[in-house]
Amino acid sequence: MAAVASKSDQGPAKIKVEANELAERILALCAEIPQGVNDKVLQASMPEVDPKSRALAINHLLTNGKIDLLQSERGLLYKARTSTSQVGTIKGDAEEKLVYKIIEEAQNKGTWIRDIRIKSNLVQTQLNKALKSLKSKKLIKDVKCVNSTRKIVYMLYHLEPDSSVTGGAWYSDQDFESEFVEILNQQCYRYLYQKLEKSRECTSGPLMAKNISQASSKEVLQYISELGISKIQLRPEDIEAILDTLIFDGKVEKTLALAEGEETRLYRAVESLIPVTGLMRMPCGGCPVIKECSDVGSVNPIKCSYMKEWLS
């Protein structure tokens, strides 16, 4: 073919330039078809290019990290890489690049060391070396997982760990902030209870009263934010988690309603169904040794010290 002959006549520099052009053409084609360009399609679109030049161009693009080489049922696929990946710029050996690539994929959830090992098929020692060097280059970092104390996940240096790893708003440095949760719990309940009390003064019927006593999670969030007890910004999901614990306490109930075209959760404080039940007004109700209580033995109703305290 004429084009190819001309290329080979002009010398290496010209080949390089033309290779660059070719690469750009290929890249443009890949960009047009983001799902990936089949090799055959590529061939068909530039019939004048010989396979060797094409291969060179593709290799060039690959090393620069501009496209990805993927395998599909129909053959090889070339995909334009859209992420601002820096694999190409890493000065490291192939193993490190591979490890980096795997970690990058996991984004802000991070990958467990075992997963990296499986995906990369590297030996543990090699893997450790790679990780160490990447860490020293400040490209990745390790984050301790909040769910299990020994689990460590790796992610890119600049990324913020996801809430599932750090526990989100409730954890600060791996410590569960139980006091914070408690305070939020109490404040939310107070807000809802105040609403309930206000609704009791309402004179326009029970339905009106019920509506007054209800609050959506957004309203509660607003109230809490205004109170300023939280250093970080809480999201609706966080408040809903707190409100759910109140539901589990039996102090609050939830209804779903359709408001402004979208489903919202409405919460209202409720009184408990029954007052303290009769059994628990006697010491025997809450007795820790009731299983041992009988007529014989040291634990019996006549010598019971709880009874004695209760009766005096």
């Binding site: 007529d295 109703p301 019971c304």
Partner: peptide, 16 residues
């Protein structure tokens, strides 16, 4: 538990 509490209450009362 209720039965036991009731028995204990009666026994203790009779004893006292």
């Amino acid at each position: 538990m209720c039965y036991m509490s009731l028995s204990n209450a009666i026994i203790r009362k009779n004893h006292e």
